[in-house]
């Protein structure tokens, strides 16, 4: 019984991280409609930005987190300005954007490896972090923070999208970009801000992963894929769906390896995706 609760807790933790990635990915996808491979590397950028600020420059932790997240956001915004928006203006197909994002991803990841070396770094200070006993299982303080950040981000984003005129503009563009433009929304500028927010969320995920396990330049792709799977299972383009999908994915992954040897974890995630796509392609929450 104890094992079951632990596995469930592990699943919830994993789900919370995937939710952050899914939120960012969903937001950007809703507005731009392409599979952005570079979204993953923004997590690494966030993590390394924090690392530089906190460990190397010695800044206060909270300041470093905020700045790290902002830097990731700016990076995503920059990629959009430099590459994607130009391609979108030209009505480039999704294939082109995908390859371009692959190029951005490869370059950014390699650049991080050059600057910081390929080595793995842990971000947290304390070893043997205080573990709290919850419902028969164990969670660390970091993991609790991850859950809260994830839920807070979701609520914050929901508030943003539903309660502000900016949010309305974003939803309008998601529905139909042409019409949004005709109605007078500055789609270019709004898209840019969306990239900033989505990328910032990825950066936050990267920092949190860094605290939980550690950072490495290559950490992006894995996180991205999980975020994408979560989004699709939950219903692409839908914020709440993405979060639900993320928690479902986290739970299935972790409970699944109770039965199956642990090394198949990635395969299990994709299998879940395929099952959903076959039986319920629109995801848990329809658009």
């Amino acid at each position: 019984m104890e094992i079951l609760s632990q596995l469930i807790l592990n699943g919830v933790m994993a789900g919370a991280l995937y939710a952050l990635m899914a939120l960012g990915f969903n937001l950007i996808y809703g507005v731009t409609r392409f599979f952005n491979l570079a979204h993953g590397v923004l997590a690494a950028i966030g993590g390394y930005a924090f690392f530089t600020l906190s460990k190397m420059l010695g800044l206060n932790i909270y300041l470093s987190v905020a700045t790290g997240v902002a830097i990731a956001g700016l990076a995503g915004y920059g990629f959009d300005r430099l590459v994607y928006s130009k391609l979108r203006k030209r009505k480039a197909s999704n294939l082109v954007l995908l390859v371009a994002s692959l190029g951005v991803f490869t370059t950014a990841q390699a650049a991080l490896s050059i600057i910081f070396t390929s080595q793995f770094q842990t971000l947290s200070e304390t070893a043997g972090q205080e573990a709290l006993s919850v419902l028969g299982g164990v969670v660390t303080r970091t993991q609790v923070i991850i859950i809260f950040s994830s839920l807070a981000s979701m609520l914050g984003l929901a508030a943003l999208l539903n309660g502000t005129s900016f949010g309305k503009a974003v939803r309008a563009i998601s529905d139909d970009e042409e019409v949004a433009r005709m109605v007078g929304i500055n789609t270019g500028r709004v898209t840019g801000y969306v990239f900033f927010i989505g990328s910032a969320l990825a950066g936050l995920a990267g920092i949190l992963v860094g605290f939980d396990t550690g950072i490495q330049p290559t950490m992006g792709m894995g996180l991205l894929l999980k975020g994408v799977i979560a989004s699709i299972i939950g219903g692409v383009g839908n914020i709440y769906g993405g979060v639900l999908g993320a928690f479902l994915l986290g739970l299935v992954e972790n409970l699944g390896i109770w039965m199956i040897p642990g090394e198949w974890k990635d395969a299990v995630s994709f299998l879940l995706l395929i099952v959903f796509l076959v039986f319920r392609p629109q995801g848990i929450i329809k658009r």
Binding site: Q6, L7, P261, E263
Partner: peptide
């Protein structure tokens, strides 16, 4: 007996077992 991919950074599932 539990195994994990070389680049995996989350061994919790294996450790629980």
């Amino acid at each position: 007996e539990e195994a994990f991919p070389q680049d995996s950074r989350d061994l919790r599932g294996q450790l629980v077992k």
